[in-house]
Amino acid sequence: MKNNQQIILGIESSCDETSVGIISGKHQLLANVITSQIKSHQRFGGVVPEVASRHHVEYINFCIEQAMQQAQVTYSDIDGIAATYGPGLAGCLMVGLTAGKMLAACLEIPFYGVNHMAGHIYAAAVDHQIQYPALALLVSGGHTEFVFLKDETSFEILGTTLDDAVGEAYDKVGRLIGFNYPAGKAIDEAAQRGRQTYTLPRPMINRSDLNLSFSGLKTAVRDLVAHEKQKNTLNVDNMAASFQNAVMDVLIAKTKKALTQINVKELIIGGGVAANLSLRDRMANLIHNDFPQCKLTIPPLRLCGDNGGMIAAYGAVLAQHKNTSQLDLDCNSSLSFINAAG
């Protein structure tokens, strides 16, 4: 299905999903095959890096083949290969990165190393042209940060979590109130059933900067849960609602602060926690009521979690700018955007 647009194949293996996406041009996603290891890591209550990287080796060829089949392309149709090289689990990153570099070497086409977080932002570019300057709020199991995009290749961190990522806080709280890993969806659903009856802190909500903190909130939940369990009065749904409200209050307040401080045309929410229904609702309200001139873009649910499509999407941007990577690119598990906040 080759047209005159460039075709980029993107590989993602930074944590517990092996995924390959294929994009035509910068916006048309032709395939996005995702294999999830959740069932495996549920045995351990969280991702075990060695187990995750073994699964990546098992499924990498399957994902590449399935993606090409779905996209109806052959190897000779592909113009470039993109792969995540960080941040993420080193042993996991190496698998996708090696696969990507090997494909590029064999097909004699350019290779593009992609920052996983840029991928999460560019999930928003599928079927959509991002307007710059833009602000991205990245919320996932490993990251929580505000990123300013002057244009499509410049990323500047305006604020970040000082301790736990928001997704991490969800998983830890999930464990406290009896939900399996990963707990994000279960807490979100319980919160829809429950009411905010417990009093929890909103860490750093009144500080003028855009940094965040979630470990204190988690500790507050832990103490409260222990107390309630002792009295045999713990209401899980209400606890979930109270926790989720606290998280959302902070995220909304900080986003409001960011949009007041800087002038952007678009707000992008990316990362696994962008699948949270309460977050999606409340962000839509914030933009509608307070910043109607700013466009809100939240990728469809399937593109919020880790996926190769988003890596292909940012690979397509790098390809347009001829920003190729050398084949001796190594993974960088703590890769970061430039931090403007210092």
Binding site: S53, R54, H56, V57, I60, N61, I64, G91, M94, V95, T98, A99, M102, L103, C106
Partner: peptide, 9 residues
Amino acid sequence: KIGVTAGKV
């Protein structure tokens, strides 16, 4: 894992 991945791809 690296050798095997390169080989199988």
